[in-house]
Design a protein around this nucleic acid. Structure first.
Length: 287
DNA sequence: CGTTACCTGAAA
DNA sequence: TTTCAGGTAACG
């Protein structure tokens, strides 16, 4: 469920709460063992016991807790995962799948209805990450860097935005929103963008993600932050899940289509299919 | 490359 | 009862 702005919101909340805290134990609930991707809970528990959290970071949609043992806990929330920072006495959330017991009678709870989320323990962060594109809110993310990822590709532009190897952290909400802001049709070939469109897309991506962070993320269905509160970004979306509602730029009914297997929302007037898609040139060399 | 599987509950 | 879901990896 959570995309970059939601994970960043959680990171900002947890950072001051977790830094300096010692982990007393780690436990996985019965039936949720798969979230460790084959590793045994007792093994993780043995390694993190007594360790202190020294940093809380984010890369794309991954959250990581650096430990003073020089190991890193890497968490991905996938579709319905969330984290809760609670006092031990606080009522247990339904669908709690794993718990880090901390000093001061605190707990970090991993809650996840669908059990898609994962927790890894590694020596170096990169060991737990797949190939990821640039961080869209960092200086590394330039219009040129974006174009490097899109050039030569025939896939639907939206699918390219969802590919974490191109840009890290964009998900279904912010892909639709960025394309709306950039006036680009979600199905146009990724490699067909002209220079102005590339820079429009580049700034649209940054804008929607920044706005998402400012509003504490978007709570459409499941997302809540580490205190259990909702974000506000759902009140600011222009197209996402607004099927048949009037576009607030031009009044045209928002359309919903499926692109790359994902529900996709756009304004057919503000985001027209390009008359003649320009040739996709220079094939991109394989990474 | 597009499609399917992974899970489970809420909404239609 | 069926459809749908803020994601990704594994298919063919």
């Amino acid at each position: 469920m959570p995309e970059l702005p939601e994970v960043e919101t959680i990171r900002r909340q947890l950072e001051p709460l977790l830094i300096g805290r010692q982990i007393h134990s780690f436990q996985v609930m019965p039936g949720a063992e798969r979230l460790l991707r084959g590793r045994a809970a007792f093994d993780i528990d043995a390694q993190v016991r007594g360790c202190t959290v020294t940093a809380v970071s984010r890369r794309g949609k991954y959250l990581s807790l650096q430990l003073d043992s020089d190991q890193v806990i890497v968490i991905h929330l996938r579709m319905t995962g969330s984290l809760r920072y609670r006092n031990v006495e606080h009522e247990n959330e339904q669908f709690t799948r794993a718990v880090f017991r901390l000093d001061g009678n605190r707990e970090l709870r991993f809650v996840d209805v669908r059990k898609f989320g994962t927790i890894d323990l590694v020596e170096r962060l990169e060991d737990a990450l797949p190939a990821l594109g640039p961080e869209p809110l960092s200086d590394d993310f330039t219009a040129d860097a974006l174009w490097d990822a899109l050039r030569g590709r025939l896939v639907a532009l939206k699918s390219a935005l969802l590919d974490q190897a191109n840009v890290a952290g964009i998900g279904n909400i912010y892909a639709d929103e960025a394309l709306f802001l950039a006036h680009l049709h979600p199905e146009c070939p990724a490699g067909s963008l002209r220079p102005r469109e590339r820079s429009a897309l580049h700034s649209a991506i940054r804008q929607v993600l920044q706005q998402g962070v400012q509003h504490g993320g978007a709570s459409f269905r499941d997302y809540t932050d580490s205190a259990g509160d909702e974000g506000a970004q759902q009140y600011y979306v222009r197209v996402f899940r607004r099927t048949d509602e009037p576009c607030d730029a031009c009044g045209t009914a928002i359309r919903r289509i499926i692109v790359g297997g994902r529900a996709t929302h756009f304004c057919p007037t503000c985001q027209p299919v390009r008359q003649r898609s320009r040739q996709v040139t220079s094939k991109r060399r394989s990474r």
